[in-house]
Amino acid sequence: MRLRSIPVSAWVGMAGIALALVCAIFAPWLAPHGESEIVGDIWQPMGGQFLLGTDNLGRDLLSRLIFGARTTIFVALAATVLSFSLGMLLSFTAAVTGGLVDQTFSRFNDLMMAIPTLIFALVVLAVLPQQLWILILVMAVLDSTRVYRIGRAVALDVAVMEFVEAARLRGEGTGWIIFREILPNTLSPLLAEFGLRFAFSILFLSTLSFLGLGIQPPAADWGGMVKDNKDGIIFGISAALVPGAAIAILTICVNLVVDWLMKRTSSLKGGRGDA
């Protein structure tokens, strides 16, 4: 793969993601103030002493944004990756094996989807101890039901193709059929779904935070920051828009990269010579 063949939009996306990652990793060194340190009046305007102003408790918005990148990106990304791994593995196994395995997985999936996601998450998180990995796991499992549905649908279309039959006739194992024959042919719709699910994860995380079951204060996360400052909008204070914009920009950047990957994976000529 040549670097020059990567379109500008993908570079922009990668730059945006890289910036967010740098912020997340080096947060304590980059942030001018502490994460939960009250440094001034509430809702001070942008500019001056604080580049992005202060929030509803007088904490530096820029610092919280930088620290917030940590939790937000880590939790959302981990949950999405996990939900995709889980959903795709189960759905492909169901599609390839068929029969009883397929029925069991699919009906259990229906069962999970029949329960409203938010209520299910609230119940589970309220019962389980409040730890980050449990939060990620619950988000991932709940999200994987959606991935499972799409994954099974696209994999079924591919699993009946003759090249899969040819692989079976050759005596290939289920692993080879899933990862070498089916996965490369289903990557495009799943990648598109990934870009979307990532954004939903951030939103879901902020919903949970707002209800008191996500990231616990005073730790910062972008969704939580929007909720914290939303009352300011009534008074014409833009503090809520800053983390909102950060979420939007990150989502767009992820989708720019995903679009490019999708174009590459949907090409039947290995990305050579077709648009």
């Binding site: 193709m161 003759e162 090249f163 040819a166 070498r180 024959e181 490369p184 042919n185 039947l268 290995g270």
Partner: peptide, 9 residues
């Protein structure tokens, strides 16, 4: 067409 995996050379 359908007997060969389109993603393999």
């Amino acid at each position: 067409d359908t007997a060969m995996n389109p993603r393999q050379t």
